[in-house]
Simulated assay, not measured.
Amino acid sequence: MEKVVTWTKGVFDSSYMIFCNGQVCGNLIFDTWNNHAFGIMSQKNYHFRCKGFSDITTTIYGDNNVELGVITFHLWQFRAIIALKDQIPFTWNYSNSWLSSWNLSNHKDTQMHFRASSGSGTISGENLENELALIAGLYIKEFFSRILVAFIAFVAIMVAVRGI
Protein backbone atom coordinates (compact mmCIF):
# COMPACT_ATOMS: atom_id res chain seq x y z
CA MET A 1 0.00 0.00 0.00
CA GLU A 2 1.35 3.40 -0.98
CA LYS A 3 1.87 5.97 1.78
CA VAL A 4 2.61 9.68 1.63
CA VAL A 5 5.00 11.68 3.81
CA THR A 6 5.38 15.47 3.47
CA TRP A 7 8.23 17.82 4.24
CA THR A 8 8.86 21.55 4.45
CA LYS A 9 12.00 23.66 4.21
CA GLY A 10 12.71 27.37 4.21
CA VAL A 11 13.67 28.85 0.84
CA PHE A 12 17.16 29.90 2.00
CA ASP A 13 17.28 27.39 4.85
CA SER A 14 18.76 23.90 4.88
CA SER A 15 16.58 22.53 7.66
CA TYR A 16 13.85 20.05 6.77
CA MET A 17 10.79 19.18 8.86
CA ILE A 18 9.26 15.82 7.97
CA PHE A 19 5.57 15.13 8.62
CA CYS A 20 3.86 11.74 8.94
CA ASN A 21 0.05 11.87 9.13
CA GLY A 22 0.18 15.61 9.78
CA GLN A 23 2.53 15.30 12.79
CA VAL A 24 6.25 16.13 12.88
CA CYS A 25 8.08 12.80 12.73
CA GLY A 26 11.57 13.94 11.80
CA ASN A 27 14.09 16.66 11.04
CA LEU A 28 17.17 17.02 8.89
CA ILE A 29 19.45 19.91 9.79
CA PHE A 30 22.53 20.86 7.74
CA ASP A 31 25.62 22.70 8.93
CA THR A 32 25.90 26.08 7.29
CA TRP A 33 29.33 25.86 5.67
CA ASN A 34 29.73 22.17 4.92
CA ASN A 35 27.65 19.16 3.96
CA HIS A 36 27.48 17.62 7.42
CA ALA A 37 23.93 17.07 8.66
CA PHE A 38 22.06 15.77 11.67
CA GLY A 39 18.82 13.88 11.24
CA ILE A 40 16.19 12.64 13.66
CA MET A 41 13.44 10.14 12.79
CA SER A 42 11.31 8.31 15.38
CA GLN A 43 13.67 9.08 18.25
CA LYS A 44 16.70 7.79 16.28
CA ASN A 45 19.65 10.06 15.54
CA TYR A 46 21.57 10.02 12.26
CA HIS A 47 24.77 11.93 11.49
CA PHE A 48 25.79 12.53 7.87
CA ARG A 49 29.49 13.38 7.53
CA CYS A 50 30.80 14.36 4.11
CA LYS A 51 34.47 13.61 3.48
CA GLY A 52 35.17 16.43 1.03
CA PHE A 53 35.72 17.41 -2.56
CA SER A 54 38.36 14.86 -3.55
CA ASP A 55 36.43 11.89 -2.10
CA ILE A 56 32.76 12.65 -2.65
CA THR A 57 31.24 10.24 -0.17
CA THR A 58 29.18 10.73 2.94
CA THR A 59 29.25 8.31 5.85
CA ILE A 60 26.08 7.87 7.89
CA TYR A 61 26.49 7.27 11.62
CA GLY A 62 23.96 6.36 14.27
CA ASP A 63 24.21 6.85 18.00
CA ASN A 64 27.60 6.08 19.59
CA ASN A 65 29.28 6.67 16.18
CA VAL A 66 28.11 3.32 14.81
CA GLU A 67 28.55 3.37 11.02
CA LEU A 68 25.21 2.68 9.33
CA GLY A 69 26.14 3.19 5.69
CA VAL A 70 27.82 5.21 2.97
CA ILE A 71 26.46 7.48 0.23
CA THR A 72 28.57 7.66 -2.94
CA PHE A 73 27.83 10.58 -5.25
CA HIS A 74 28.18 10.55 -9.03
CA LEU A 75 28.23 14.30 -9.70
CA TRP A 76 28.25 14.31 -13.50
CA GLN A 77 25.28 11.94 -13.63
CA PHE A 78 23.35 13.65 -10.80
CA ARG A 79 22.83 10.34 -9.03
CA ALA A 80 23.98 8.56 -5.89
CA ILE A 81 24.23 5.08 -4.41
CA ILE A 82 23.26 4.49 -0.77
CA ALA A 83 24.86 1.39 0.74
CA LEU A 84 23.30 0.73 4.15
CA LYS A 85 24.54 -2.07 6.42
CA ASP A 86 22.84 -5.42 5.74
CA GLN A 87 20.55 -4.00 3.03
CA ILE A 88 20.37 -4.03 -0.74
CA PRO A 89 21.98 -0.79 -2.09
CA PHE A 90 19.63 2.03 -3.07
CA THR A 91 19.91 4.06 -6.26
CA TRP A 92 18.99 7.77 -6.10
CA ASN A 93 18.41 9.80 -9.29
CA TYR A 94 16.47 12.77 -10.59
CA SER A 95 13.42 11.88 -12.66
CA ASN A 96 12.83 15.20 -14.43
CA SER A 97 14.94 17.93 -16.02
CA TRP A 98 13.73 20.62 -13.57
CA LEU A 99 15.39 18.71 -10.67
CA SER A 100 12.12 18.84 -8.73
CA SER A 101 11.37 15.13 -8.77
CA TRP A 102 13.61 12.23 -7.86
CA ASN A 103 13.42 8.52 -7.06
CA LEU A 104 15.03 6.26 -4.50
CA SER A 105 14.86 2.52 -5.06
CA ASN A 106 16.54 -0.71 -4.09
CA HIS A 107 14.88 -2.29 -7.16
CA LYS A 108 13.15 -4.82 -4.95
CA ASP A 109 10.81 -3.87 -2.11
CA THR A 110 11.45 -0.13 -1.60
CA GLN A 111 10.39 2.52 -4.11
CA MET A 112 10.22 6.17 -2.99
CA HIS A 113 9.16 9.05 -5.22
CA PHE A 114 10.09 12.54 -4.02
CA ARG A 115 8.48 15.68 -5.42
CA ALA A 116 9.41 19.24 -4.49
CA SER A 117 7.98 22.69 -4.99
CA SER A 118 9.20 25.90 -3.41
CA GLY A 119 9.93 25.00 0.19
CA SER A 120 7.88 21.82 0.49
CA GLY A 121 7.35 18.43 -1.01
CA THR A 122 5.97 14.93 -0.79
CA ILE A 123 7.41 11.46 -0.57
CA SER A 124 5.24 8.62 -1.78
CA GLY A 125 5.83 4.98 -2.45
CA GLU A 126 6.29 1.54 -1.05
CA ASN A 127 8.07 0.80 2.24
CA LEU A 128 8.39 4.33 3.61
CA GLU A 129 9.10 2.67 6.96
CA ASN A 130 12.78 2.60 5.98
CA GLU A 131 13.38 5.92 7.73
CA LEU A 132 17.11 6.02 7.10
CA ALA A 133 16.61 5.62 3.34
CA LEU A 134 13.90 8.30 3.43
CA ILE A 135 16.03 10.86 5.27
CA ALA A 136 19.07 9.95 3.10
CA GLY A 137 16.94 10.78 0.03
CA LEU A 138 16.40 14.30 1.35
CA TYR A 139 20.08 14.61 2.30
CA ILE A 140 21.16 13.78 -1.26
CA LYS A 141 18.70 16.30 -2.71
CA GLU A 142 20.14 19.06 -0.53
CA PHE A 143 23.71 17.98 -1.34
CA PHE A 144 23.06 18.34 -5.08
CA SER A 145 21.19 21.63 -4.54
CA ARG A 146 24.21 23.06 -2.74
CA ILE A 147 26.57 21.91 -5.51
CA LEU A 148 24.31 23.53 -8.11
CA VAL A 149 24.13 26.84 -6.19
CA ALA A 150 27.92 26.86 -5.76
CA PHE A 151 28.38 26.26 -9.50
CA ILE A 152 25.95 29.06 -10.42
CA ALA A 153 27.69 31.43 -7.99
CA PHE A 154 31.08 30.50 -9.46
CA VAL A 155 29.87 31.19 -13.01
CA ALA A 156 28.31 34.51 -11.94
CA ILE A 157 31.55 35.60 -10.26
CA MET A 158 33.60 34.62 -13.31
CA VAL A 159 31.28 36.57 -15.61
CA ALA A 160 31.43 39.61 -13.31
CA VAL A 161 35.23 39.48 -13.05
CA ARG A 162 35.62 39.06 -16.79
CA GLY A 163 33.29 42.02 -17.41
CA ILE A 164 35.36 44.38 -15.25
Rank of each mutant, 00 (worst) to 15 (best):
V159H: 08
G121K: 03
L128D: 00
N21C: 06
A160L: 14
A153Q: 07
G39H: 09
C50M: 13
N127Q: 05
M41Q: 08
W102K: 07
G121F: 04
G26Y: 00
S145A: 13
A116G: 11
D55K: 14
A136M: 07
S145L: 08
W33H: 07
Y61P: 06
L128Y: 12
G125P: 01
D13P: 06
M158T: 13
W98V: 12
Y61F: 15
S145C: 03
F90H: 10
D86L: 02
C20V: 02
K85V: 15
I164M: 14
G10Y: 05
H113S: 06
S120C: 08
I164Q: 10
L28K: 00
G10L: 06
R49T: 14
L138S: 06
Q111E: 10
I164P: 04
R146G: 10
I88G: 01
A136H: 00
A150M: 13
I157H: 14
M17F: 02
W102T: 07
T58A: 09
E142K: 03
V159A: 14
F154V: 10
G119W: 08
I140N: 08
S15V: 09
G119T: 06
G22C: 11
A133D: 02
T32F: 13
K44Q: 15
Y16E: 02
I81W: 04
F78P: 03
T58K: 04
F30N: 11
S15C: 09
Y16N: 07
A150K: 14
I140T: 03
D86F: 07
L132W: 08
R146A: 01
W76H: 09
N127C: 02
E129Y: 11
R49V: 15
N45C: 03
L128R: 01
R162D: 10
E126Q: 07
E67L: 07
N45M: 15
N103Y: 08
L104P: 05
L68D: 01
T59N: 14
M112Y: 01
I56N: 07
A136Y: 05
V24R: 14
N21D: 14
F73K: 02
W102Q: 04
M158E: 13
Q23V: 03
G125L: 01
V24K: 15
N35D: 15
G119K: 01
N93Q: 11
F19W: 05
N103I: 07
I147F: 10
T32N: 10
L75G: 02
L134F: 03
R49G: 07
F53G: 10
V155H: 08
S145M: 09
F38S: 12
E126V: 05
R146S: 03
M1R: 12
I157L: 15
K9R: 15
G39E: 13
F90L: 00
V161K: 12
R146M: 10
R79A: 06
K141D: 07
M17P: 01
S14C: 00
L138Q: 00
